[in-house]
Design a protein around this nucleic acid. Sequence first.
DNA 1: TCCATCTGATACCCTGAAAGCATTGATCGT
DNA 2: ACGATCAATGCTTTCAGGGTATCAGATGGA
Lengths: 295, 295
Amino acid sequence: MDTRHMRYFMALAETLHFGRAAERMNMSQPPFSRQIAMIEHTLGVKLFERNSRNVALTPAGKHFMKDCRNVLGQFEDACRDVRLIASGMKGELRFGFMMHAAHSVVPQLVQLYAEARPDVRLVLDERTPTEIDEMLVAGTLDAAVTFDCGYAPHLQAVLLARERLRIIMRKDHPLATAGQIGPDELRDEKIIAAPAATAPALRSAINSYFSAGGIVPRVVLEPRLQHTIIQLVAKGLGVALIPASLCTELGAGLTSRALSDAPQLDVVLRAPITTKNPAVSTFMEIGKSIQRTSL
Amino acid sequence: MDTRHMRYFMALAETLHFGRAAERMNMSQPPFSRQIAMIEHTLGVKLFERNSRNVALTPAGKHFMKDCRNVLGQFEDACRDVRLIASGMKGELRFGFMMHAAHSVVPQLVQLYAEARPDVRLVLDERTPTEIDEMLVAGTLDAAVTFDCGYAPHLQAVLLARERLRIIMRKDHPLATAGQIGPDELRDEKIIAAPAATAPALRSAINSYFSAGGIVPRVVLEPRLQHTIIQLVAKGLGVALIPASLCTELGAGLTSRALSDAPQLDVVLRAPITTKNPAVSTFMEIGKSIQRTSL
DNA sequence: TCCATCTGATACCCTGAAAGCATTGATCGT
DNA sequence: ACGATCAATGCTTTCAGGGTATCAGATGGA
């Protein structure tokens, strides 16, 4: 038994006429009759009651017809789907992103891609930049949005946006109403920043900003999550330098200010060059289209 | 593409080794390799990444594996089920029965059959004897329990039980405490009985009982449903002759009495001789086993 | 570095499943 | 009774798919 035999059976079950069923199968009647006989023989089941005048389904044949319709449908679907998956029209894309990009490019990227490839299941995974790098290398992620940290072999990258850092503080903090803010003004401030092990690019940008002014920053707290940093600032435990896009939705007691010669960070979309997931390529393409509008 | 090809694919997907997969398919490696290449070619999809040292599934291949497992499973099921249906182990049996047998043989028959053939769906259909006869001929029922009405071509029959008729009446009715009850005692009673058009065997048994005593019964009401007859007797509108098995669960105000020379009716299990439903034969066999215990 | 070995791909041949054509046999309507 | 219709059967042919032998690329040990 084979799907071909099921198709023969279905043709006869639907037409109840050997000649016409054979025609539908693009063959002549005699071999078709033989195939039907063969099917019945191998199954050991009489599927049709027939004489030289009439053809009718047996009860077993009626049930088999339903089952065959099912099986053939699923069979076709499987063949169709594997093509769609291979072409990137269907499947799954594991997409990582850092919190620092969650409010800017990520929503846009996700929305555009979901519109372009509605049958690809986007698995979103918020991670720290370091975790993202590891998972991209390990193949646990297909693509990710993170800060550009320079050299990365076997990873392709698309520049999505360039973000300036701003400083955030409580509204009752002296700096909230001060003039220009640069490294010098921050000399004695308690700084809250993610550790280098978690967000190397961000931390090194902050460090460079201070060391360019000859200052050693007083980093008093190093929480791993961006969320936590903002909460600690809100409790008055210090100030923090965070990407501008995260400053739009601060809590009530917080405010942000621009920095003089503010450090810039590149937000990139990354994926392994040797990715086997065909869904990635259009994801990267959509990244490029975002780049054109955001830069 | 065919299920055979899917099986080849699955063998390779599970072993990730051409030689061993070919062996599992009981063939040599070269034609197996060709078949895999053919599958990939006809689908237009690369399912395996391979060199002379390693074989691995592509993402599309991984998805296809799941789909194939599904399809192959359903395929096997369909072939297995059609055999079960043809052997009467699975399927559907449309079973009609008259109310007059609902309290005696029908529950037993249904229970025994459900135990013997748990995968056959028993469709129960309570009908009047006349409806049952029509539906058996029309093929709307596969089998039915009804009164034996003598000659019935192209119907096979198994005698299930022989039921005596008893008379039912209100407890405050004079007959409830009278001596022997025969046609003579019923001469002036108002009789309630199903019309001949609905239950010919029953009605003719009642008529014969009276005419044997030279009596013409005073049939005052002719409801079609057995249920209604009992209700009308309860309201004091007359008395009725009903099968003994229905007398065990009369309402509070009713009682039943034996009749002298009570008429007997044969309860039979019937099915078309030329039935195409393979589930019927064991149903009839179980009927025969009930017959042995009940007679 | 070279060779033995493992593994998948290719070349070529051969068998049999399945298709085609011609015909038979059974059934129904005129 | 006869012709028309339709499924079944007999016989031939073809090609999909299997077998054997061999090649070619990769790996690991000497």
